[in-house]
Simulated assay, not measured.
Amino acid sequence: MDKREIKSIIEGLLFIWGEPLLASDITEVLDIKENEVHLILKEMMNDFNYNRRGLQIKQTNNSYQLTTRAEHFDWISKLCTPRNDKKLSNAALETLSIIAYKQPITRMEVEALRGVKCDRSINTLVQKELVKEVGRLDKTGRPILYGTTDDFLQYFGLTSLEQLPQLEDFTKLDEDGQLELEFD
């Protein structure tokens, strides 16, 4: 099977699957090496971007998904009825931020940092599949350790946790005492 045919099959797999598809699953279906799958997908991503196609391939950790381009949102939204998903509350966003930067972390550690109870926020984040149980702490009561999911990365348009802004970027205050973000 030539590379052109492999690309065609991968594009079809990504289209029909809809959700992020693990590279290992593509490897299994095509019976080729995983590093070859990654190289072909990287080529496809570059081709899609170079040709300004209406679709793009997004990578999240070790999975890939076919998506529309963000810059086409205004046109696509005219055709589609927007979903009425509830947005995250400030409390949930604060909790999610702490988990993202301090993971793996227990509920009690999050509460100690926030200074308030976080049960509802954590439950909301688990229900929205932005946070998951990643283990248990080896101490009395064996508290649950929480971490972010690939859905978290996808929701915020990140490829990996390394793309999170550095905490130092959040430490500068303006003259009104408000956080002033500085990004390169």
Rank of each mutant, 00 (worst) to 15 (best):
R107N: 05
D176L: 11
G157D: 00
L145C: 08
L130W: 00
E175Y: 08
G12H: 05
T171A: 05
L158K: 02
T95W: 03
S121W: 01
V131Y: 05
L14G: 00
N49V: 14
A70W: 12
T67E: 09
L179H: 05
G177L: 03
D151T: 15
L30M: 03
K117L: 10
K172G: 04
N51D: 06
N62G: 00
R120D: 07
Y101S: 07
K86Q: 12
R52V: 05
N61S: 06
Y101A: 08
W17Y: 12
N61C: 04
R69A: 00
F183T: 15
T159G: 09
L55T: 15
L41M: 04
K33R: 14
D74F: 07
S160F: 04
L161T: 09
Q65L: 00
S24Q: 11
L130A: 06
I122W: 00
Y146L: 03
R4C: 01
G12P: 08
I16K: 12
I144Y: 08
G12S: 11
A100T: 12
M1N: 09
R69H: 06
V116K: 13
I99A: 08
L145T: 12
K7D: 02
V29E: 00
E28Q: 13
N61D: 02
L164E: 01
L55V: 15
T159V: 13
Q103D: 02
S77F: 04
C80F: 10
